[in-house]
Amino acid sequence: MSDNHAERTEAERSELTRYARFAVEQMPLARRDGGTVHAQYIRPADAVVVLPMFANRDVMMIRNHRFAVGLELWELPAGTIDPGEDPLVCAHRELEEETGYAAVIMEPVTDFVTCPGLCTERIYAYMARDLTASEQKLDQTEQIVPERVSWERAMSMVQDGTIRDAKTIATLLFAECFLRQELG
């Protein structure tokens, strides 16, 4: 797509409503028959997900109560990027807040869009290494329990459906490929 197209479509977007965590917007889309339809979508802030890995390849995961689905999910630590915040800074902050660990090394792994038919969210995935115990600093509404699991168990949890969170599944599977290359 040309830059001109991106500028034109950005100018045609309009906000329908705004909430604390996201806005609902719409933009006109050309139909194949020459007509136009207005498509609505959600514009949340972008986010990070962190894969905290110990030297023996154990992973620090979290069990996180998610009110929207009414479930406690196995996840990797993650969080929303504040306006103007660098994703790397957010990754360090979220790791410590949710797990009580800090990382000396925070490597970018990949980034991905979560649900491009419905929202604009982009998630930046990082691998945290050289971990040291710190202090968990949860928000008032968070119900998060960190738990260290082996890499083999994490992969088994993806395969058997124990891990149901998409950002966690995507990051773990991408990291599996990354680690295979690293190990040769």
Rank of each mutant, 00 (worst) to 15 (best):
I163N: 01
A175R: 00
A103E: 02
T99G: 06
A133N: 09
T36F: 04
D33V: 05
K167L: 07
V104K: 15
A23Y: 03
G100D: 05
R164E: 03
L71A: 15
C115G: 07
G100N: 07
S14L: 10
H38A: 06
M1R: 12
R63M: 11
A133E: 12
E135L: 15
V37A: 08
C119W: 08
M1L: 11
G34N: 00
E25N: 12
A47R: 00
V49W: 00
T162D: 01
E15N: 09
L88M: 12
R164T: 08
M27P: 00
Q136A: 15
A128W: 05
A47K: 01
A11G: 05
R148N: 04
L71C: 12
L183Y: 01
Q143H: 14
G35T: 10
Q40N: 04
V145A: 15
S156M: 08
A45V: 06
I169C: 02
I144M: 13
D86P: 08
E182P: 01
Q136N: 14
T141V: 15
R180Y: 02
M27T: 06
E107L: 11
M127N: 09
A102V: 09
G34T: 00
M60I: 11
L138H: 14
L118H: 12
T36S: 05
S150H: 13
A175S: 02
A170S: 04
V109M: 14
Y19P: 02
G84C: 14
P28M: 03
L131T: 00
P83R: 08
H38Y: 14
R31N: 12
Y126G: 06
L138T: 11
E10L: 03
E10Y: 07
P87R: 10
E75V: 01
T110Q: 08
L71T: 09
N56D: 12
T141D: 15
A20Q: 06
L29G: 11
G100K: 12
A133S: 14
R129A: 14
M127A: 15
V59Q: 02
